[in-house]
Amino acid sequence: MQQFLESFLPAGPVVVFVFSIIPLMIILIYALFAIWLERKVAGHIQDRLGPMQTGGWHGWAQTLADLLKMIQKEDIVPAKADRFLFKMAPFIAFAASYAAFVAIPFSSGYIGSMIDIGVFYIVAITSLLSVSIIMAGWASNNKWSLLGAMRTAAQTVSYEVPTVVTILSVIIVTGTLNLMEVTEMQTGNAFLGFLPSWLIFHSPFMVIAFVLFFIASLAEAHRVPFDLPESESELVGGYQTEYSGMRWGLFMLTEYADMLLLSLVGATLFFGGWNSPFGSFMDGPVWGAFWMLFKGMVLVFVMMWLRWTLPRLRVDQLMNLCWKYLIPLSFVNLVLIALWEMIF
């Protein structure tokens, strides 16, 4: 990809710029689509239609219109807020999730950076998100925001443990932290002759690992049933309460970017990343990008589906679930996968 860009772009810095801007483009376009999709999914699940007017066909331009509206809105900072932290928080939030995309192999021809510690880097950099949320909650000088921020701190710290442990159990199988290599390992139809050699089919414990990972990633992305930091009906809007306009929009963008990020990580670790499910059919760099995003979107859709089905957990139950169920289970699973790996 980099060579391909260098072949027609003049200078090195431009290439690097274009190269690094690609994930941003993907996130932005995806966010536009995902927010629209969320509305449509919500609408149809609830026997409604969702947006239908803006842009003509099924309200496709609704998110664009909202974006325009948000840009035009007044940038309100509460009088007693800590202005600097308040203004910085959304940027840090978005930067954190944007930076994580660098280690995602979008296709066999494109990965932001071939770093060997890819997964580790992603886990580390997304932790910044909780920092930004605490910043937002604290700087808002609003008690509801503060409660939301406190919940986030507890939630993110707790749920990182099962996430990391499940990722670790995958790493035991792959033997590498580089997501590109993880994906390359999953090429071909190894299992039973017809199943793609995705890691989810590797052993029954991998399915459990995926379920644990998915639950933990829901919590990491603050999605229902773990959307306690925002929890509209309890904390008004949690850490977002005092935000409006584009700053709020950035939080929203971060939420969706996070969903995609965790879905893509899930797709890479368990569903073969950019590998085609049909072996060499529909394979290649371009198809690879399609499959990657498609798999990510399927997981995103499941997240949305869950959101519009389930109620929300309480904060102590959230902790219970994490410390009493997910973490022990993930450790047991880790051991089992290791044993499986030793035996077979």
Partner: peptide, 21 residues
């Protein structure tokens, strides 16, 4: 119960909507 719920919402995903435009 989560899967029961998801089944119900999935069924509703394809039922006719009641919206009057």
């Amino acid at each position: 119960t989560i899967f029961t719920g998801m089944g119900i919402t999935f069924r509703h995903l394809f039922t006719k909507s009641v919206t009057v435009q």
